[in-house]
Design a protein around this nucleic acid. Structure first.
Length: 517
RNA sequence: GAGCCGGUAGCUCAGUCGGUAGAGCAACGCCCUUUUAAGGCGUGGGUCCUGGGUUCGAGUCCCAGCCGGCUCACCA
């Protein structure tokens, strides 16, 4: 069946070639403007109003346009089709008596999916659609497949490509057929570009650091491993950007950022893909408060650049104003407020477990849809973060910074001088989703060494996500690093919030999919 | 990794009680010189995800597997 269609289309291609119009031999076609621009310009043109006999005066200006055929109607000796240039579409009108025998046959050989260039003038049809009255037609490519392009009326679509699996596996079809999907993906690209402009404008240096690493650190995650033949050794794909970027701070580059792909060997969900794009930025002589201001500033800038407004219509809360400063709360305070525990309950692991049992916290968690298994919690920091996840995260709808994370889960963040069990670290949340992770970076090499040693004992205990010991990084710190604030933001998470997407795959062109067969 | 749901024509879907496969769009032929989900007449098109099983007979029931979706787990 599909072979039949392919065969028919190949025959049409052959016929085009016989007529001296091989679509694939054309290399260039000059277009006057995009579909959107032509439709806008039309209002300024004194085009004929559907009066086909009007060959008056100077005639309307000749324009050219090219695009993919997305609809096609043949009426014997005339016909209409729509051409899409991706960003917009415009109707063309062709007549046998004007195109001539060859031109008309070329029109009839067109299929939905082909690319074609036209030259003609703008006019208004009887039914009021701004269209191109075609004088010349040039085939620019022949589609050998039936593309699942839907029909459309009043903005509503019929029969598009709906199957999500196919949308992800064959993204080009999704881009051709689904305007909303296309917009989210393009917005993501614009968001990344705006982020880059923000940091360039703020005096940061954009750098690139190694993806292939011997010690993959900077985050708690399992790396991918691969083989480097020349040195006959195993290398890992990076799981974060952090340590190399801080080594540049140690080299007296005072503000750096990188936007780059990182790889984590873990499962897929609506918020996780094994490879994703991470932004990290580091600035000397500032701290976590400086990072909060940067995050606020950057969100505001990006929203204005991409959407022209700091007010975003995202999520169930309605518009969120990114121009306002984000609320700042203390992590332990929030846990206590939401769970009914008290600060004293959370000063050591056994005490915390006892309080959780005594106060019925596990049942409360269940009511919120969360599961706390005290047997699985072997350190206070991990337990605190679990409480955060269950009791606090769902309440964090408007942009907010949660400050003060436990030391066990923050091996690269400075200790809080007022509470050595906690660190000078925050995470930003929007709509219950973790958006960024930032802290005052440890610049005391002795402290950092102790943290690595602590992590090493976790590795020895079997935690394969504990932070690896990194000699090179310690060596750089010993040379002296200024006080520094650093921050990481998942670009997909950022794009999800700004585009209102509820699945990470909607803002990645080619998400991870299991191969078929 | 677990549970639930799904996979039928190129696309979107229907398919009853188990009786041997359907519609619209797309495609092909004819008609039609302002149509627009164009229209009219006609035609072709299927590995019913894969492999077993039950049965006289399986798209349908059973088992196993593959791929996907959702939820959970994992992912500080």
């Amino acid at each position: 069946m599909s072979e039949d269609i392919r065969e028919i289309r190949l025959q049409k291609l052959a016929r085009m070639r016989e007529l001296g119009h091989d679509p694939f031999s054309v290399e260039e076609f000059k277009r006057t403007a995009s579909a959107k621009e032509l439709l806008e310009w039309f209002d300024d043109l004194t085009a004929p109003r559907g009066d086909e006999d009007d060959e008056s005066t100077d005639g309307p200006p000749i324009i050219s346009f090219a695009g993919r055929v997305v609809s096609y109607r043949d009426m014997g000796k005339a016909g209409f089709a729509h051409l899409s240039d991706g960003d917009g579409k415009i109707q063309i009108y062709c007549r046998k008596d004007e195109l001539g025998e060859v031109g008309w046959e070329l029109y009839q050989l067109l299929d939905i999916g082909d690319h074609v260039g036209v030259e003609g003038f703008m006019f208004l049809t009887k039914t009021g659609e701004k269209s191109i009255h075609v004088k010349q037609l040039v085939p620019l490519s022949k589609s050998l497949q039936t593309l699942p392009i839907g029909k459309e009326k009043d903005g509503q679509q019929w029969y598009g490509l709906e199957d999500v699996e196919q949308r992800y596996r064959h993204r080009h079809l999704d881009l051709i057929t689904n305007p909303e999907a296309r917009k989210a993906l393009i917005d993501r690209a614009k968001i990344v570009s705006a982020v880059r402009r923000y940091f360039d404008g703020a005096g940061y240096l954009e750098v690139e650091t190694p993806l292939l690493q011997v010690v993959a650190g900077g985050a708690a995650a399992r790396p991918f491993t691969t083989q480097y033949n020349a040195y006959d050794m195993e290398v890992k794909l990076r799981i974060s950007l952090e340590l190399y970027l801080k080594r540049l701070i140690c080299g007296d580059i005072p503000a750096v950022y990188e936007i780059g792909r990182v790889f984590r060997n873990e499962g897929v969900s609506n918020r996780h893909n094994p490879e994703f794009t991470l932004l990290e930025f580091y600035e000397a002589y500032t701290n976590l408060e400086g990072m909060m201001r940067r995050v606020e500033d950057m969100f505001k800038f990006v929203a204005e650049e991409v959407y022209g407004s700091t007010t975003c219509e995202i999520g169930p809360l309605g518009p969120i104003d990114l121009a306002k400063p984000w609320r700042r709360v203390d992590l332990l305070d929030e846990i206590c407020a939401q769970s009914g525990l008290e600060r004293d309950d959370l000063s050591d692991l056994d005490q915390a477990k006892a309080a959780i049992k005594a106060k019925g916290i596990i049942d409360k968690a269940h009511q919120l849809g969360g599961h706390i298994d005290l047997n699985k919690e072997d350190n206070l920091g991990g337990l605190i973060e679990k409480l955060l996840e269950v009791f606090v995260e769902p309440t964090l709808q408007e942009p907010i910074f949660v400050v003060g994370y436990p030391i066990e889960t923050s091996p690269l963040a400075k200790k809080d001088p007022n509470n050595p069990r906690m660190t000078r670290r925050f995470e930003g949340y929007i709509l219950g989703r973790e958006i960024c992770n930032a802290f005052s970076e440890i610049n005391d090499p002795i402290d950092q060494k102790e943290r690595f040693e602590q992590q090493a004992t976790e590795i020895a205990k079997g935690d394969d996500e504990a932070h690896p010991y990194d000699e090179e990084f310690l060596y750089a710190l010993e040379g002296g690093m200024p006080p520094t604030g650093g921050c990481g933001i998942g670009m997909e998470r950022l794009a999800m919030v700004l585009t209102g997407s509820d699945h990470i795959r909607e803002i990645m062109f080619f998400p991870m999919m299991k191969p078929r067969e």
